[in-house]
């Protein structure tokens, strides 16, 4: 059960944070932000550790581009799991799922992966808007709606 989706810019500024405030009061906007914010450390670390290995030799530079955008589980808490995804332009997509899904089954990695890919596509659509300035917060209601859809249906 996805609870929150965040789009974070190159400079680690929040571009979009959307969540479904479904149950408890702790699920409010602020706690979501805390979660995503603290995930940034791990995310950045992964990016920096991924880079020297790749750029160490010239032959592996090509691999950098083909690197999997999906970063996997960043960290987990008692209640949430946080997954990361980085586009080639260093836009970070973060998906927060609750650790205990109501159905009892755990969320599979592949599901998260596809969800994040779809999210990437949605993001790409959203910034295709000629009136959107890169680096600005995403305010598109359509994007918001679609993201919420993903969160509700997919995962």
């Amino acid at each position: 059960m996805a609870v929150c989706v965040a789009v974070i810019g190159k400079d680690n500024s929040p571009l979009y944070i959307g969540g479904i405030g479904n149950d408890t009061s702790s699920d409010n906007e602020l706690s979501r932000q805390w979660l995503v914010h603290t995930a940034l450390d791990a995310l950045e670390e992964r990016l920096t550790t991924a880079n020297p290995n790749n750029s160490g030799t010239n032959t592996t530079t090509a691999r950098t581009d083909l690197r999997d955008l999906y970063l996997g589980l960043l960290f987990s808490t008692d209640t949430h799991k946080i997954y990361g995804y980085v586009t080639n332009t260093r836009i970070k997509l973060v998906l927060v799922t609750s650790s205990t899904s109501p159905s009892g089954s755990n969320i599979r990695d592949a599901e998260v992966r596809t969800a994040l890919r779809r999210l990437h596509a949605l993001y790409a659509d959203a910034i295709c808007n000629p009136f959107h300035l890169p680096g600005d917060q995403i305010t598109s209601p359509k994007f918001d709606k679609q993201v919420k859809n993903i969160m509700l249906n997919n995962v």
Partner: peptide, 13 residues
């Protein structure tokens, strides 16, 4: 320790 590894946000949290 988080600070030591540069996870400042985590540390702050």
């Amino acid at each position: 320790l988080y600070k030591d590894i540069g996870f400042l946000r985590k540390a702050a949290f």
